[in-house]
Amino acid sequence: MPAASPSATSLGDRIFRWVTAISAALVLLIIGAIFVELVRHSSLSLHRFGLDFLTSTRWNPAKGEFGAASSIFGTLVSTAIALAIAVPLSLVIALFLVELAPPWISKVVGQAIELLAAIPSIIYGMWGLFVLAPVMSEYVQPALGRTLGSLPLFRGPPMGIGMGTAGLIIALMILPFITAVMRDVFRMVPDVVKESAYGMGATTWEVTRQVTVPYGIHGLAGAVFLGLGRAIGETMAVTFVIGNKHHISASLFSPGNSIASTLANEFTEASEPLYRSALVELGLVLFGITFLLQIGAHLWLRRLKKKMAVST
């Protein structure tokens, strides 16, 4: 390596520092720009509808009426269904992988799960539309209607697609993801702690419930947060099966929509400035929700780290 003169060195390094710093700052710049652009392009709708936008259920592009309530409702409900299914299921699968399964099964299944987390969401959507929806309409929904039809949740014609099916697909999508994180959390519990419980004669379930879960509770909550973040902005898997109707219903069988599915379906067709502006405002709402979620999750994890640092 030829010896560089001091001035050349510092010039090269100064450029180096600047180039890397600018690349890094680009991340922040993009976040800021997303916010500014979304606000700028939704100003028409922001001025016209104000806060009513969030609460109105009317969505009539022909009349120039736009309200986000049904999209927001659908986003929250489909996410809630997905989490209600995926979280307990991933918890027991992670438990199975770490505590119960023989090592070779745990390894194979663990790797399979990580691969499945990589499958694009549009594949889940395809499968949902062509395989799951027919199964739902022929077997699952009629059976639910017969047995639990008195509840408003399970009323209506079994069309296969709808809010329930959308929630189920999102659940399948985030399942491998949450399972992988929870498995890592369970693995971080020191063996010594578990072994001392086993040594006292505790069964596997007792060790899990009273030692492993409390020990990793914050990490588990982090996993749920991550899953929530994925579920709430999920677009393609949902758009295929949610039914795409601006409609609020208590029934899981009825078609609905979510913010992301509305955008995916209508944005390229929207030619009116107000229509487009309303759709951008929907995007702004989704951006706002995910942004707050991320900050919440991050602060939570930071507090957790501090706590751990004190206790160890």
Binding site: A25, A33, I34, T235, L293
Partner: peptide
């Protein structure tokens, strides 16, 4: 301080739904 902010920003940006990124690029 920039490093900390960028680390945090990266997590936020990774959590932004991809359809929002599409919407943003549409506008710019």
């Amino acid at each position: 301080r920039l490093g900390d902010a960028v680390r945090f920003g990266s997590n936020v940006l990774m959590g932004v739904p991809s359809i929002i990124v599409g919407l943003f690029v549409y506008t710019i």
